[in-house]
Amino acid sequence: MSYAHHRARRAGALALLLAGGGLVGGPSAQAEESPPTDRELLAKCDNGTKKCVFHPTGGLTITPGEDHRVGDLAFNCTEDDQTSSRAWEDTTGETNTHKVSLREDFETEFLGFIKIFKASFEQSFTRTWSSSHTESQTTFINVPAGHVGWVTRAPKVQKVEGTVELIFEDRFEGKRYWYVPFEATGPAEGEPSVKTQRSRPMTAEERGTYCA
């Protein structure tokens, strides 16, 4: 048998082995699966977990929120100081790190987590978590001559941060224990907002528009 004929027979046998899976190749690189997102984990809280708990870190913080104008501007086009009344209504909402609404009537996907969070919050701080609060009032503004006046409001907000601990009966995405950091800010019920009267001289354009 010639050398060329022998090589041809070996090549044919190798092809048959490869086609039939007789040879095992080296390990191939497999893309690692991405871990579940924090929102996906929060959706599993009390909805597939053996245990789900929110652990607050530290105490509750109550501070004035962002100061912003409420109601219409009051223009004083006279040469005397004036007092003007302005009726206004302002709503303070909530924010959190994972953009989850904590209103039970709005959410279904995170309903288990919402109930766990609120129960832990009330037990830890003897306060109620509120997702929205609306305040309305009529404010009297003292506006100097030739000035424009307005009212600003800084609502009191409560802030809490902590960790959501999720324990699964069976492994979920390879693990039985998962931890999700969570921070939320919302209106502090029963705490008065900070309202401030402000004024400044009118611009020439404002005089031409409102005092002509």
Rank of each mutant, 00 (worst) to 15 (best):
K50R: 15
K50H: 14
K50Y: 13
C52P: 03
C52R: 01
C52D: 02
C52K: 02
V53I: 11
F54P: 00
F54M: 01
H55R: 13
H55M: 10
H55K: 11
H55P: 03
P56M: 01
T57D: 02
T57G: 02
G58I: 01
G58H: 01
G58W: 02
G59T: 09
G59E: 09
L60H: 05
L60S: 05
T61N: 13
T61M: 10
I62P: 06
T63P: 04
P64D: 06
P64I: 03
P64N: 03
P64S: 06
G65P: 04
D67L: 08
H68A: 14
R69G: 09
V70Y: 06
G71P: 05
D72T: 14
L73M: 14
L73Q: 11
L73R: 12
A74Y: 06
A74S: 13
F75M: 10
F75N: 07
F75D: 06
N76S: 06
N76K: 07
E79K: 13
E79W: 12
D81R: 14
T83R: 14
T83M: 11
T83S: 12
S84I: 15
S85D: 15
R86F: 09
R86V: 15
R86N: 10
R86L: 11
E89K: 13
E89Q: 14
D90E: 12
D90L: 03
G93W: 04
E94G: 07
E94F: 05
E94V: 04
N96D: 09
N96T: 05
T97Y: 00
T97G: 06
T97E: 05
H98T: 04
H98D: 08
K99P: 03
K99E: 14
V100G: 00
V100I: 15
L102S: 00
L102R: 01
R103M: 08
D105K: 13
D105E: 15
D105T: 12
F106G: 08
E107M: 02
E107S: 10
E107Q: 11
E107P: 03
E107F: 00
T108M: 07
E109L: 09
F110R: 02
L111R: 12
G112S: 07
G112F: 06
F113S: 00
F113L: 03
I114E: 02
I114Y: 01
K115C: 05
K115D: 07
I116Y: 00
I116T: 09
I116F: 00
F117N: 02
K118T: 04
K118R: 14
A119E: 15
S120E: 08
S120Y: 01
S120N: 06
F121M: 06
F121P: 03
F121C: 05
E122D: 13
E122W: 07
Q123I: 02
Q123N: 13
S124R: 11
S124D: 07
S124P: 05
S124I: 03
F125I: 01
F125A: 01
F125Y: 08
T126V: 11
R127T: 08
T128W: 04
T128R: 09
W129Y: 11
S130W: 12
S130E: 14
S131T: 15
S131H: 13
S132N: 12
S132M: 12
H133R: 14
H133I: 11
H133V: 13
E135H: 09
S136I: 07
S136Q: 10
Q137V: 07
T138H: 03
